[in-house]
């Protein structure tokens, strides 16, 4: 279970990345955020952002046309 969940369903680029960045900011290293998005662009944007920011993408899966990402703060 992630420490924080970001519901970015219905939001378009760049909001999933922005909401995730805002949610991860107060966390400490090792804590996780789960992001749920419906924007197909998030499939490339969230992993790219996480990698560039030094976070780890722990999990990624698709369920009912929604994209789930679990990001661990670096």
């Amino acid at each position: 279970m992630a420490d924080v969940t970001v519901d970015a369903r219905g939001l378009q680029c760049p909001m999933p990345v922005i909401k995730t960045s805002q949610a991860i900011k107060p966390l400490s290293s090792g804590q996780t955020v789960e992001v749920i998005a419906s924007d197909r662009g998030a499939l490339s944007d969230i992993p790219a952002w996480a990698g560039d920011m030094g976070h780890t993408l722990k999990e990624q899966f698709e369920e009912n046309d929604e994209f789930h990402f679990v990001v661990e703060k670096g």
């Binding site: 680029c13 760049p14 990345v17 922005i18 995730t20 960045s21 805002q22 952002w49 560039d52 920011m53």
Partner: peptide
């Protein structure tokens, strides 16, 4: 504004 906010999201 999209790029400015995304840049901020990138720290």
């Amino acid at each position: 504004m999209l790029l400015a906010t995304t840049g901020a999201a990138y720290g």
